[in-house]
Design a protein around this nucleic acid. Structure first.
Lengths: 150, 150
DNA sequence: GGGCAATAGTTTAACATTAAATGAATACAT
DNA sequence: ATGTATTCATTTAATGTTAAACTATTGCCC
């Protein structure tokens, strides 16, 4: 049956904390994405629209960096968004390597309508914690992220 | 440029906390997977091996539930692990709907060698937090996960 | 200014992932 | 006991995801 792994106390604690971190993130993310089914958007597509909504037109490389995915991935996701008429590509005339991605009228309308729903879901999920607890959680998470690179 | 979204204070806080949670999880997970390149295992494949290592042989449905993925996904991942001779499928003779997945000698040897490395990476990543901080983080995460369903 | 390194984007191959449809085996209700 | 509903696994289609190879463009350097 269960293969017992003999780790140190620190390892046990770290693995236990990590699994809880994973579950919490997965849980909130899962719920934050349920409403996307209605508009037939994938989480990745929503992520791109959200980034453009908040930051304005972006070069694909910047999108990839923001969303922590590869360039090839962005090519695919933007392709599908473009097919649906939600975003447009516009090559930079100064430096023709760059391609600016911006929301179309339709894309802007959609994400402008979707984001408040998204924000509300996140808010309700996080409200099992008090404001202080959320700040505390944020601080602890920030420390974990800082650990450099990646 | 930046399209300003006018959310409530609660929404702003929740979104801010959520993004930090996502970044922290992504950061630790990313680092925990770097060593898999050496043995040409994908994170999903590692996840299956890890589950089998700790819980013993599992039916595919249980694997899917443990790893929070769909059944079709497990079919694919187990296929690839089976091709490499790391796991074996064995149909249950009592209830022929079930397929038990278990580690082969080679699979057991591999995950037994890999898991300590994995545990050590997680430990080092989490050690930017004290033991108390880790417990606190775990508790906060647990509250988030509890919010039922999903 | 001609060659070379660096950067942006695309493509390809392999694997992952989901939802939905299907097939096979079992449970259950009347 | 027979028909119906469940459950498990697979398949399919579509999209995502990465790494690696490739193209195109620009920057740099001698």
């Amino acid at each position: 049956m269960s293969t017992s792994y003999q780790g140190s106390e620190e390892e046990i604690r770290a693995l236990d904390t990590y699994i809880k971190l994973m579950r919490a993130t997965g849980s909130v993310t899962y719920r934050a994405h349920t409403h996307l089914v209605d508009v037939k958007l994938t989480p990745s597509q929503f992520g791109v629209l959200e980034a453009l909504f908040h930051l304005g037109p972006l070069v694909q490389r910047d999108l990839a960096n923001k969303l922590l995915v590869t360039g090839g991935n962005i090519t695919m996701v933007v392709d599908n968004l473009e097919k649906r008429g939600l975003v447009l590509r516009k090559r930079d005339s100064d430096d023709r390597r760059f391609i600016n991605v911006h929301l179309t009228e339709m894309g802007n309308e959609l994400i402008g309508r979707l984001f408040p729903v998204h924000a509300d879901i996140i808010k309700r999920e996080l409200q099992v914690l008090t404001a202080d607890e959320q700040d505390l959680l944020g601080d602890l998470c920030k420390k974990l992220g800082l650990n450099e690179t990646g």
